[in-house]
Design a protein around this nucleic acid. Structure first.
Lengths: 238, 238
DNA sequence: ACCTGAACACCGTTCAAGT
DNA sequence: ACCTGAACACCGTTCAAGT
């Protein structure tokens, strides 16, 4: 539109004033493309075509910017609808979709981690979870405890998984690869062999989530949900 | 010793050459006193009485330094011995002491978080845990799965608790304080009231840990361990 | 082998000043 | 109300040079 000078990407006149929303949008863009660390005020200002003080004028300092970013992403998250027939299944299904959503947005986790805001994750889904908990027959303090517990379990898992996603193996690899690991005998070889490989995070999440939800709802554990899983794979004792 | 010039804290001659261990010790000192962010190469060099290039010579760059620091703290950690009569109790007790230890060293968690090394946390205790798991009758894949699951649960909790320790309330506070929170009726008032207050993190940890350990060991849930807990505190439905 | 001064290429943030 | 140039006070890291 209007005049465009090839060498000067800066807006020539008073064209299209930068707004706080535009700053936020551009910031989100940078984070999604190049990660949280790449989001510097100077880079942001440059991409916006303004000087750094302008950024400070629209949105506060870098911390405020990151906080706003978290909330923004958050609002786009958690449009989950429960699936399943039993209450436990429905609740588990919520937390499963949530993990999938959050995994698809690693920036969000990275942001939350750097900002120390493990809670801010998804607001919408909280309503759904609360609703489903009362539908499951929980009320008052019990419902609140179940709510917090489930959310905390989810948040902790998401955070650790992310913190560890680069080259994880629950530390094991180096440690358990050593022949002398595990004092002497005692720890059998099959276990040690398995610990040398990466842990199956999905399996862990599934199991812990199921277990916690069922316990909160007062159901007995039952090996029903994941058939064939956790059946005694007891191997040679060495 | 020898000459000491008051205005110049730098070591005057070739006195007491800096070693890698001294660098590490000083770094640990700074982190413990002023936090991870305060640990800058320049500050470290200054406190050591040398120029910045010296630091680079002894220990690599900042990342390597942080990694080494994590491992160092780690080695001082996890001298736990299991207490309790049943296997579940003994295992839970390990993870309880571990949380206590890690809580007493917030720097370690901060370090692990910034370095993305949620696993590095405590090496020694892993042996104890593995031992106790096999003593509980688990072997092979099952034992490995239990091991990873328990560690992951612990790590996730520690990480989230730390990330959130400053002003936590599972996001709730702002959200559930609003009168319109929870679509319309449905969510009862007692639950909403409880969500406005901070969640009891100890209670959550205790409950999830117990539940998971018992499930892994094949015990039935049972409300025995924490008597009086989670008894239907169902209050007025509004 | 160990240390130095000095520089490079970045940061976040603020100030005085412009329109 | 919004934007600028310029600076301040920091960073991590490296280079060439000293002993």
């Amino acid at each position: 539109m209007t005049q465009k000078r090839p060498t000067k990407p800066r807006r020539p006149k008073g064209r299209a004033p930068v707004t706080a929303d535009k700053v936020l949008a551009m910031a989100l863009d940078i984070v999604e493309r190049d990660g949280v660390d790449a989001l510097t005020i100077r880079r942001l200002a440059a991409d916006l075509g303004v000087g750094t003080p302008s950024v400070y004028w629209h949105v506060g300092n870098r911390n405020e910017l990151l906080d706003r970013l978290i909330e923004e992403i958050n609002e786009q998250l958690g449009n989950v609808q429960p699936r399943g027939r039993t209450p436990a299944e429905r609740i588990s299904s919520i937390m499963r979709s949530l993990l999938a959503e959050v995994r698809a947005r690693p920036h969000l986790i990275a942001l939350s981690a750097t900002q120390g805001r493990g809670e801010a994750i998804f607001t919408k889904a909280q309503e759904v979870l609360a609703h489903e908990l009362t539908a499951a027959g929980l009320h008052g303090e019990d419902a609140a405890f179940a709510f917090s517990t489930i959310l905390f379990h989810f948040g902790g898992f998401a955070l650790l998984e992310h913190a560890v996603s680069h080259d994880y193996r629950i530390h094991g690899v180096d440690h358990w690869a050593r022949a002398d690991a595990g004092s002497d005998d005692d720890i059998d070889e099959a276990m040690r062999a398995r610990l040398r490989k990466d842990a199956d995070l999905d399996e862990i999440y599934e199991f812990t989530l199921d277990t916690i939800v069922r316990a909160l709802l007062g159901e007995r554990p039952g090996r029903a949900p994941t058939p064939g899983r956790r059946s005694g794979a007891s191997t040679s004792k060495r």
